[in-house]
Amino acid sequence: MRLWLVVLAAAAGTYALRVSFVTLFGRVDDVPSRVKRALAFVPPAVLAALVLPELVLYGDGLSVSLSNDRLVAGLVAAGVAWKTEDMLATVVVGMGALYVLSLVP
């Protein structure tokens, strides 16, 4: 019962976030162009905020060196993403790089 409460409350809260601007903007005729411009920065800012900590934080601290397998694999994957703009290739090469690096002592 407790767990259902968590699932339903979190789902309702999350849905409210998702639907917020979609319904708001449905009521106004025009989205100001300045707002539109600012929203173009949402993907790079959010995605970088999600990715970078995963690559450079290890345990409780910062680890920026070639001995950080996830950072190196991430850099390789970033190169693939830049060259190919292909999601599958990026994920496959990045995972492959991580496996290869974890074999290197």
Partner: peptide
């Protein structure tokens, strides 16, 4: 680790100029 890799694959093409960078 596949999760940040996926975000990375979406991040790189979203950087198109100095301001997005």
């Amino acid at each position: 680790f596949a999760v940040p890799l996926l975000f990375l694959a979406l991040l790189v093409p979203s950087i198109t100029d100095e301001a997005t960078g």
